[in-house]
Design a protein around this nucleic acid. Sequence first.
RNA 1: GCCCACUUGGCGGAAUAGGUAGACGCAAGGGACUUAAAAUCCCUUGUCCGUAAGGACGUCCCGGUUCGAGUCCGGGAGUGGGCACCA
Length: 861
Amino acid sequence: MNEKNTEYHANSIEKYWQNIWQQKNIFKISEDKKQKKYYVLEMFPYPSGRIHMGHVRVYTLGDVLARYKRACGFNVLHPMGWDAFGMPAENAAFENNIHPRTWTNKNIINMKEQLKMMGISYDWEREISTCDPEYIKQQQKLFIKFFKANLLYKKEAWANWDPVENTVLANEQVIDGKGWRSGVKVERKLLNQWFLNITKFSDELLSDLDLLENWPENVKIMQKNWIGKSVGAEIQFEIIDKSKLGLVKKNLNVYTTRPDTIYGASFLAIAPDHELSKILSKSDSNIKNFVLKWEKTFSNEEMIEKGPKEGIFTNLFVKNPITEKELPIYIANYVLSTYGSGAIFGVPAHDERDYLFAEKYKLPIIQVVRPYDNSIKSLPYTGPGKVINSDFLNNIDTEEAKKEIIKKLEEINCGTKQTKFRLRDWCASRQRYWGCPIPIIYREDGEVLPVEENELPVLLPDDVDFRKKTGNPLENHPDWKHTSCKKTGLSAVRETDTLDTFFDSSWYYLRFIDPFNKNPINKDIVDDWSPVHQYVGGIEHAVLHLLYSRFFVKALHSMGEINFKEPFTGLFCQGMVCHKTYQDSDNNWVYPEEVIKKEAGQFLHKSNGKKVKELRSEKMSKSKKNIVDPVNIIEKYGADTARFFMLSDSPPERKLEWTNSGIDGSHKYLLRVWKFFKSVSFDKVARHESYNYKDKKNIHLIYKTNYYIDKVTKSLDNFQYNVSVALIREYSNIFFSLDIDTSNEEQLIALKFSLTKWVILIAPMAPHLAEELWKQLGYQESLVSIQPWPKADLNFLINTDVNIVIQVNGKKKLVLKIPKDLTAEETKALLMEKEEVKEIVRNNKIKKVITVPNKIFSIVI
RNA sequence: GCCCACUUGGCGGAAUAGGUAGACGCAAGGGACUUAAAAUCCCUUGUCCGUAAGGACGUCCCGGUUCGAGUCCGGGAGUGGGCACCA
């Protein structure tokens, strides 16, 4: 850099320091085994081709932490990679006839360049991409391990089927019951798909949430609700007249969380896809029609929400094992086969759905619970109370009755206590091209076998025509799926589904630890570095990605692959980046840069001069055009300005409002700092860590330096980066307002000391500028990025005087300066003699005095 | 419907552990510099009363605990988020 240049050319400065960091390799982990490790990770991005402000925010937050921890002496691992499989690449292939791989790799190159512009302290040598053949190979090995450990199985399941595109759609791709691209109503289709046995770990996934002290409470609650543990009873109801239909099973299993209401049961209902429904529909055309109708409508979400409770009587009855009463069996559209046992007993008086059903089919409504306040509310009543109309349970609390009835059921061998979960196994099959191939073959003799390890990876074929929109590309490929079993020579067919991309992201954080190992996970090193100390990412993954990753770690732990049970010790979820939205008179969205502000509340379109409405601020999104391109911002102001603004305006977990004045403000501030540093030369000033200062002003500056080191450090530890920014500004306001006398050596020594500390404090936030300023302070040969974090000298923070607030009846009356650390008695004695205090008290009788040393003197009159 | 979070000036937000509410900014107004503007620098800025000194009120609303509540407790409103036929 040209030393004489006093202009702040952010772009060239930033490029310069990024090169220096890279040359000196300062963001690599050290091999020193004794150094304490710290693994900082931000959720890796999907390579869409361009970074957006959300990326800028999350990666800035992660980088502040990584740089700060590095300065604190930790051996910091901070890697970055690409979540490179997924739908957009296939859509691009379809729309622009470009191969998904070409498209993805091009995007990675672009995005990497953009990320590098931000100056984030990644160790780029660890970069991984989930579509890389090596990652695919290791992941397929993992898949096979899961398969061999019986954590993977294949079963028929309902999927969203787009009849025009002939493919399965993910739930997110179904909008209002229609395919997002075809616009055609999605059908439900039974497909044979691969499932991961996540439910095997339901209990652990739930209870281990308690171990995650450094996770946001709301994420834990979301996971808890998603897992949905409920404790109840499974009860066997004997089917009467089963011989009539030649039924093999004589019992119907029913799960309930309200066994206490069993005396109120007036019917039994099973799901339309319950095993018994299937049997009955074979011989009964009415039942068959009912089930067929249900199959067509039940994918429609609106029907599920608002649709009527409907059912059909099966002509069968069961015996209530407790009351011995006969109850009719219905097939009902509101009973889910996927929860519990797919069968319920209906208690109309105490369940809203059962109530609606009973009204429709004129079934008895028997009240068996009375609310505690005795008020005769309208039925159904679903709360707790005293049990009535229930023989031996009468007058018992509902909670107690649950226990009693289970005891009874167990005695007569008709039921047991049961715990159920809402969580379902994870369907990991996708009938798509751009994903990791599932390494399974189906041999002609019917065997389902994993691909032999020496044949891995199974890679995607390149010669696929993406303009043909129908069907699964791997299924339709002329020869890809045809293979043979190498052991037996028998012919075989490959699995043509690929893996859900959440599979890729469920273990990438383990791969980063040793990205080139010939095994997926190198246990020794992975155990050393795991779990990730601080994970940073969006709350939109609160359940999916974070739950899947937790499952992966538990599964790998159960297989002995790793020695820890949770993937992320700390989790931080950053807020969204928002911007005002604009619409013209035709309700077309308008980009912010096309809007010019006239007077207050008046906005015009830049090019056509038409009026534009300013609407509410929302999360930046392409569809509403309320986006600001980070690359433009970095080119205009520099990465440090962008980073600094990302940190300054809002607490990291809350939404950040993007404003032009905000980014301008950050830029002006950094410019001001720059100019200040350029205005004084410290080349010839010696650096003193301790010095015998004589001048009170200098002593004060040293005091403030220590004060702010302490405060900034605490705010960083608490993730209050907006406060850190405020403190750094406050601190700099002190030296901005100094009268600097360049011939006053003591002042220059004090100032150099203070500025040295200040530059280290701002370095995690504006690292490039900090390097420049560091050099300006005269440190030509070292980098601020590898300076140790300053420690506040607490001796300096010991004040001799302290402000004490004098209150009367709890209201502040005056503030006095008194010596620090007086006892309560000394404080009282001193203050009661003060004229100002006497003045306040005057003739009033003092009832009581509360003294909090160094803080408050409260007089009650 | 159920669960959770949040609510502080014109705006974003500060405020260890119940102890000086509004730090730090943005916006606005005034001033300096300038032929002028931009930029920069300085000052003012919670509301109300008052010429002033000063006083009263003030952290969504109502109530409580306390010498003292933005902070704790009870009730209510609004905003945002998650789940939603889960028996």
